[in-house]
Design a protein around this nucleic acid. Structure first.
Lengths: 195, 195
DNA sequence: TTTTAACTTGAACAGTCGCTCAAAATCAAA
DNA sequence: TTTGATTTTGAGCGACTGTTCAAGTTAAAA
């Protein structure tokens, strides 16, 4: 090795991820990114190949961060459902200010890329499928621990959770409805236990 | 009056609406629009003022169309809930091919405009609030007709409906899950009746 | 038939886009 | 200290962006 890379790849991806999450792919220019990560175009392009390449790595990193955030809530909660609930409450209620958007970046990606043949659309599908798999494992545990009945399968609970969660995040992505969030989350988990 | 406008404003807005709905605001160029509506830039700009102006009129027209589509299903159904169910089934299951996107254009707009001070973001909030009001009237009728219990208020039903509907449209905006749509819609309406 | 205001046209503007690449800077190994 | 592969720099490329406006077209009114 003759010369080391100066920047810290992880930090760059994380900063880019925040910007892409907030503004979306098309509304984020490469000059926005250059300023945010403090790199010149040549360095960015030698490290990530293209704007799409950097977005791709940003979206992958987003899902890794989200999963490890959930794992954190799970390990400081007695029950699987309690951990999931803490995560939902944190996303929908607590960090509305420090988070770039109330909407999941994966959902935003899936909504933005209309061309079903584009590689970024396919990536969003792939990451969403993997996240559903991750959730399914969690719901398998919840069923095994008798936190949920076994009338539904784990993947059915995972689907229900995603639909509720996405719906809630969309609805609370607006001003003036903050007080409704907690009751709606309570309702979501109450419904899930009675499915 | 010395000379009439050559194009039909309604048609132009409808075509532009489809394009904006499919690709989003930022990914749709004025040249895309020129080709789609078969107008030269000068005509578009004298009629709509700007790309934002045309988008604004397109989004308003979208909500008008959506409401009149719901009204259509309502008038060919015995019950209010039946009409709403037919609308949901039509959007989520039937016309996935002919519709530019499974996702509501209002939701897409709300997701795309990150700058909370932009006039298009505010427009999306305003139209969403009006649509919630429209739904609330429908649920008032459903309660009055004893299709739903009066344990919840009409606006609470309206909120529940929007969250479920948005969640479903997001989840079914992907290939391979078509068979799950009908059971999930059944579940949504079963849950609503037991709230 | 002429006039005239309204409408349409499309070349072109200034700015921004994603991206390239020759030159400068860097630093472990020799 | 010199070497030389690697990384960083930033001016700038060609394409595309939203938009303008002078010139051309249209058709009702005079």
């Amino acid at each position: 090795m003759v010369n080391k890379v100066k920047f810290e790849r992880e930090n760059v991806v994380r900063v880019a991820s925040q910007l892409f999450w907030e503004k979306g792919f098309h509304a984020t220019s490469t000059r926005d990114l250059q300023e945010a990560v403090n790199m010149r175009p040549g360095s960015i392009y030698s490290a990530f190949g293209s704007k799409e390449g950097l977005y791709s790595e940003s979206l992958k990193d987003y899902t890794v961060q989200m999963k490890s955030q959930i794992d954190g809530f799970l390990s400081s909660s007695d029950t699987t459902l309690g951990g999931l609930r803490a995560f939902v409450e944190n996303v929908v209620i607590k960090n509305k200010d420090c988070s770039p958007s109330a909407i999941c970046m994966l959902v935003k990606a899936n909504n933005e890329f209309a061309d079903k043949n584009s590689s970024l659309y396919e990536l969003s599908l792939d990451l969403a499928a993997k996240f559903e798999g991750y959730l399914t494992v969690l719901f398998e545990q919840a069923i095994a621990k008798n936190e949920l009945s076994d009338k539904l399968t784990a993947i059915e609970y995972a689907r229900f959770f995603q639909i509720q969660f996405t719906g809630l995040r969309g609805y609370f992505n607006r001003p003036g409805v903050e007080l409704l969030a907690q009751p709606m989350i309570n309702q979501m988990f109450a419904l899930m236990k009675n499915l």
